[in-house]
Design a protein around this nucleic acid. Structure first.
Lengths: 157, 157
DNA sequence: CGCAATTCAATTGCGCACAACTCAATGGCG
DNA sequence: CGCCATTGAGTTGTGCGCAATTGAATTGCG
C-alpha cells in the first residue's frame, strides 16, 4: 500500500505543513507581484490570464477559455462581464449554437497586448531564477497537477 | 540590465503564460484535493493551515498566526470567528495588552488533530511524486517566494 | 417525431485574499 | 504629564474560486 514506511504521522504532518505552506506562499507572492505589474493596465491577475489566452488564440467561446484556465462559468461569467465593462472584450451569443457565448477582443483589448509586453520580462527577473530553473519548476508543477487531478480521492478513509 | 538577451517579448509572453498557468493550476489542484480530504473534518484548506499552526505552536495571538501564514487580519478575523463558532478555538483579549487577541485551542480543537493524522499521507500519495521530488519542489517554491517578496517592483516602467 | 438527457452560460451563496479604513490600546518623546 | 505616532483587530468593499442550481438550447434515443 501507500504507507511510506518509516515515517510517523507526526513527521508527515510537518512535511505536509511545509509543502502546502510553500505552495500557498508562492502562489500569493506571484499574485502580489502581478498585481503591481498589472495595476496600470487596469487588470487583475485572473483577468490577465484570460487576456493572455485571447491574445494567443483569438476569439473563443467561454467554454474554451474555461478549459484552458481550469475555470468554470461561476468564475468566468462575472469576470468576463467586468472585462466587457472595461471595453476590452465583447460577448456574443453564437448564431449556430445559441447556448454558447463567444468572447471577442475589441480593438482596445487587442491594443492592450502591446502595453503588456514588458510584464513577463519584469516578472521573470523578479523571480530571481534562471529560465532553466523556471522550466523545471513548471514541469514539476504540471506533474503534480496531473497526478492530483487524476487521483480519485475518496472522502472517507 | 535585465534584458535576457536573445528572447523576444513574444517568447517571454508565452513562457510567462505557461508559468503562471502552471502555478495557478497546481495551487487550485492542491486546494481541490485538500477540500475533499478535509470535508469530514469540517475544515476548509485555510482553516486547516491555521489549525496546523496551532497544533504545532499551541496558543498564539492573531498577529503571530498571520506572520506564520502570511495572512492579515482582514482574512484571519472572520476565519477565526468561524473556527470559534465551530467550537475548535476560543479567542480572548490578552490581559497584558488589550489590543492583542490570543487564540486558544479548545479540547475539541486539540482532539481534531488525531482525526487529521491521515490527511498528509493521503495527500502525499495523491501528488504521485516521491518525497525527494516534493522536497525539491518546496525548495524551488521557497526560493521564488523569497525573491518575489524582496523584489521591489516599481509599478510604472 | 417527441421526450428525456445533456450541454452551456449565468446566478446564488459561501469562504478566502487583499486594500483601505476605523477604533482602541500602547509607547515614546518633548 | 500630555500628545501623537504606532500597533493590533476588526470592518467594509471588491474580486476570485467553487459548489449547487437554474434555464434555455441542443442532442440523442426510442
Amino acid at each position: 500500500m501507500t504507507t511510506l514506511p518509516g515515517m510517523a504521522d507526526e513527521d508527515l504532518l510537518r512535511l505536509d505543513q511545509q509543502i502546502c505552506f510553500s505552495l500557498n506562499a508562492a502562489s500569493r507572492a506571484f499574485g502580489g507581484v502581478y498585481r503591481v505589474l498589472l495595476k496600470d493596465l487596469g487588470l487583475t491577475y485572473p483577468q490577465y490570464l484570460v487576456m493572455l489566452v485571447l491574445w494567443e488564440d483569438g476569439d473563443l467561446p467561454v467554454k474554451r477559455i474555461g478549459e484552458r484556465l481550469r475555470l468554470d462559468s461561476g468564475t468566468l461569467s462575472p469576470l468576463l462581464k467586468r472585462l466587457e465593462a472595461a471595453g476590452l472584450v465583447r460577448r456574443e451569443r453564437s448564431p449556430e449554437d445559441e447556448r454558447s457565448v463567444t468572447v471577442r477582443l475589441t480593438a482596445e483589448g487587442s491594443a492592450l497586448r502591446g502595453r503588456a509586453g514588458q510584464v513577463p520580462r519584469r516578472l521573470l527577473t523578479a523571480t530571481g531564477l534562471p529560465v532553466e530553473d523556471l522550466a523545471a519548476l513548471r514541469a514539476l508543477l504540471d506533474r503534480v497537477t496531473g497526478a492530483l487531478d487524476s487521483a480519485v480521492v475518496d472522502p472517507a478513509p
